[in-house]
Design a protein around this nucleic acid. Structure first.
Lengths: 303, 303
DNA sequence: AATTGTTCTTTAATGCAATAATATACAATC
DNA sequence: GATTGTATATTATTGCATTAAAGAACAATT
């Protein structure tokens, strides 16, 4: 116990500034998502707003990015991307974000395959995953926010029945088939022109081949972003929230469902068609289209 | 600051065993919910299971109950209720639960009336509500679990847009009108006979006058329980979860909407009618009935 | 006018020891 | 056979000092 304890501490310390690299990864992921290119400026305040942080941590991330050779900073002129965020050179920076996800992923895997019981104590998890209390607590808070674990009144936590059940995937779809079309059919539904344009542009970029360079995680995320933006048009946060939660649980098994590239192309094309119908304000048709879209099998991991 | 700090500590210590009284309140609330009467036995393990605790804390609660004169314990024969849980004598014990809710309630009130900004820091909240870090954190965890606050990446937390908006109540209803009937209309929908019987019995009891003795909170809770049990029949935890979250947010403004007794009677009668239709497995009709039920105005706080 | 650079303040995380709360196991009793 | 009584082991909380991280304000630069 003392052995593993100290090894963990040493490991953490040896990585110069883990946080900075993590921030660099966040910035890079954002740049990718927004389709930035080499040469684009990285404006501190804009990044800070996008990531809900202040400029101080952003600055750390930018410096780490420079140290990694992905950005260049000149006095009083800020930082500029030197590599395309989709290029191979950008990969290590992005991996830094994922590294922090490893434990999260193994817990998710263990729950999904029932290697963990529904009820667990913190002590048990600390031992099992070699985490400090603080680390574990941050993790549990996050998982709780995603809705697949909840604190028990006494000691311990309980995983939600939502996960682990083999039927979960089908249930998630069934739920979405209800709320997403219904949201579009709500009386006050409206999607601003700007949003439609932005969404179309992003989907088009994916269709134009960018998705060859995307990770499964990014592809999944892009799909979720799209649907969340669409459902937001109902002007009812309860719909948005509900979809968010389903998506964060679907993410757990998304990694398993293998993505076939052809299905994906069709999938994105459906997104574009949906945008067209929405632009014409034919909400009844759009709702139907959405229902059909969701029911399509096989690419379940990507809708 | 040191002054308020120490006063808080003194207050906490002077209450002999706050936790035990709280537990007593939980037991009493459970007894009320289940329609127990004076003379009924309070079986430790059964209570422990119902409250997701072990026997040790239950025992503390039972002793506190005895100290309050609401239960009597005899060696090797356990505890027995000596007062009806609906009687006036039971009130103080139940109040102990609510006492712990005071800060929660004031935060809720402050958010609902925009006396708090959307973004807050822990330090700010600690000062404002005179809480220790630990106390505040438990509170924030709970609120986060209920879904109306979320941690920001840096310092601080952000209240969900779901709350505070004046439209929230209408939006919550709109959302329920979508998911509740849809759940009943799901292919695999089924409500076991036992559940129907239990629900009917409980609603009947309320109709038979018990609700005169119920607090607003209990009335609200009873309504939520009913609907959650109904939606559970869809065999899809996503529906249940979604409803739970809406309900935990609706609870925040439930206290404001004044309950008229007549509307409530009609409301409960509708619950009973719904059960009849469900028992006949006429799910299409039941779904329609549910939609109408939810749309009824005025008793919005109780559906 | 927008953006970066710098400094200072505020805020929260971490590790540790002491303490409290909860869970478990098994014997005793009805 | 179910329930209670009791002892013991496990688990988590609390307070505190230290340290790290983030935010805010304003000057400097383009």
């Amino acid at each position: 116990m003392t052995a593993s304890d100290s090894s963990r501490q040493r490991a953490a310390k040896s990585i110069g500034s883990e946080r900075a690299e993590h921030l660099a990864g966040l910035i890079m992921a954002l740049a990718r998502r927004d389709g930035m290119k080499a040469g684009d400026r990285l404006i501190e305040q804009r990044l800070a707003d996008a990531l809900d942080l202040s400029r101080a941590p952003i600055r750390l991330g930018l410096k780490a990015l420079e140290a990694a050779g992905l950005a260049r900073g000149e006095p009083h002129r800020g930082f500029v991307l030197t590599k395309n965020p989709t290029s191979g050179a950008a990969q290590p920076a992005l991996a830094a974000v994922r590294r922090g996800e490893q434990v999260y992923a193994s817990i998710a895997g263990d729950v999904l395959s029932s290697r963990l019981t529904a009820d667990v104590t913190e002590a048990e998890l600390m031992r099992r995953y070699d985490l400090s209390r603080a680390e574990l607590q941050r993790l549990l808070d996050r998982i709780a926010a995603e809705g697949w674990i909840a604190r028990l009144p006494g000691y311990g936590w309980r995983f939600a029945e939502t996960v682990a059940s083999p039927a979960a995937q089908a249930q998630a779809t069934a739920f979405r088939v209800v709320i997403e079309p219904a949201a579009i059919a709500q009386p006050g539904y409206e999607l601003s022109h700007e949003v439609i344009v932005r969404l179309r542009e992003r989907q088009q970029r994916v269709l134009d081949g960018e998705f060859e360079k995307m990770t499964i995680g990014e592809i999944y995320q892009s799909g979720c972003d799209f649907h969340e933006e669409i459902i937001r048009g109902a002007q009812n946060p309860f719909f948005v929230e509900a979809l968010r939660r389903v998506n964060s649980i679907r993410r757990l098994f998304a990694y398993r469902s293998f993505a076939d590239r052809d299905g994906m192309r069709r999938h994105v094309r459906e997104h574009l068609r949906l945008l067209d119908v929405l632009e014409l304000r034919r909400y009844g048709d759009a709702a139907e289209l959405m229902a059909k879209h969701l029911r399509r099998p096989l690419v379940a991991g990507l809708s």
